[in-house]
Design a protein around this nucleic acid. Sequence first.
RNA 1: GGCCCUAUCGUCUAGCGGUUAGGACACCACCCUCUCACGGUGGGGACAGGAGUUCGAUUCUCCUUAGGGUCACCA
Length: 513
Amino acid sequence: MISPIRVRFAPSPTGSLHVGGLRTALYNYLFAKRNAGTFILRIEDTDRDRFVSGALEGLVRSLEGMSVVPDEGVFLLDDPHASAREASRHSETYPGVSEVGSHGPYIQSERLPIYAEYAEQLVESKHAYRCFCSRERLDILREKQTVDHEAPKYDKLCLSLSDEEVARRMTAGEPSVIRLNVPEDRGDIVFHDLVRGDVRINAKNVDDQILVKTDGYPTYHLASVVDDRLMEVTHVIRGEEWLPSTPKHVLLYEAFGWDIPIFAHLPLLLNPDKSKLSKRQGDVAVEDYLAKGYLPEALINFVALLGWNPGQGSTKEIFTLSELSDAFDFSQVNKSGAVFDIRKLDWLNAQYIKVLSVDELTKQVKPFLLGKDFCIGAADERKTDEYIRRVVAVGQERLTTLAGIGDEHPFLFVDPVIDPALLPWKGNTSEATREVLGKARVLLEGVSDADWTRERLGEILLEAAGEKRGDFLWPLRVALSGAKQSPPPQDIAWVIGKDATRSRIESALGAIG
RNA sequence: GGCCCUAUCGUCUAGCGGUUAGGACACCACCCUCUCACGGUGGGGACAGGAGUUCGAUUCUCCUUAGGGUCACCA
């Protein structure tokens, strides 16, 4: 009987959710779903110096917004998913969150006594030891090792301290840390990785990692190993940057006499220059992409494909979350890093926007419009929705992001400035242009309210244009949009209405002079 | 620098000894068309290099090279 699969995403609340973090969370989630396992959200806040107020709540909210919802662990207090699972405990230090599950607390700063107990156990069994070395000595040591082209690591000086000496200095109040005692004759440490196969590192290259800091807080290494054990985590799925410290974790499991979980180190997400994805060139926070008008579904889809593919010769590119969890498998996870190419995200986002209903897109796009200077917010709600609905109907197929609806079609909201030089079609004279616009003005003036629909306006204008469509449609389109590129004139006229259409044509006529 | 990981079109990737090396994004051309976008059709574009193993290597092994990660009382 194989024990049920349990995985966790364990972010540090030091900022907003990074797209790399999103991908790690997603793969954990997908793996859990695929295998009827449990996805845990744990918070690793053992560094008091890096605490950022509100970051934890933001992190959890971002995950929620992406529909990557945990089965167990930390939830937002107002999250319906949590109440559905009967949230049991409120955090004292984080008033905005609660917890679900029987393996808590799920916030490491609330588990301090647990780590202290296990650290002490390690010291007693000689797998760890007290170290009183000052940072100055450590710096000097490291500097010398660097100059000598040696691997920078602790020289085990304090390992030789007698128990009495340690006790004396402890009671004297001297600050100390607890270090892992890496056995020098241990030889190769080998562990299996679902993505990379067997990974082998010699113990002599492993440093005596600090397990407990001067302030009594555990470091990541101790805390995550203890928690993964206590929370019965079966698979540790995390970023490749953790690969070099995995031997330390293996040593810890061995020291405690615990079974070692299965590891899966995910390939890194990269900048265009192939370095680890970072803020500098482009956005890295999930909320930044949301703010720009990328849909959560598109972002999930995109990020899932960075390092994983459906295999079996499949050419499928568009995946819903549940399709992903049906198809996900580590045998199709890549080993090499993947460049985050925003252009493919753009394409995916456009695909998702294209299949949205007009009603749904209207709803989604509204917040992006209301943030603009456009004059649409003041009108009464029903009328505004109706207007946006028309804008959306016309703009949907050429949209890349939700924010683009306003940015790329300002003329659907405000009167454009007309450049008279743009008005004539292919070398036509101003006279001819004036004549065409005059004709259009009369024609449109005669269109009844009942006929002022997208379809009818199209029919009417096309009929009026006759054979030489460009002669007629181009000047009219420019008069209505002020732009070289825009939706067809009948669409713009339909959106802005008869009055605005009339006044824009008159402005254009005036601009010709 | 030590250690570790990685290596197929510009990018994401399929491939799991024998393929005209496939798809997607991007790019280019043409079609559609008043413009742009959408859509359609077509095109250019890759196995880093060198040794092996093998009848046969993109695929297996080793070396080189290149890129990346990591060496904190951060995670």
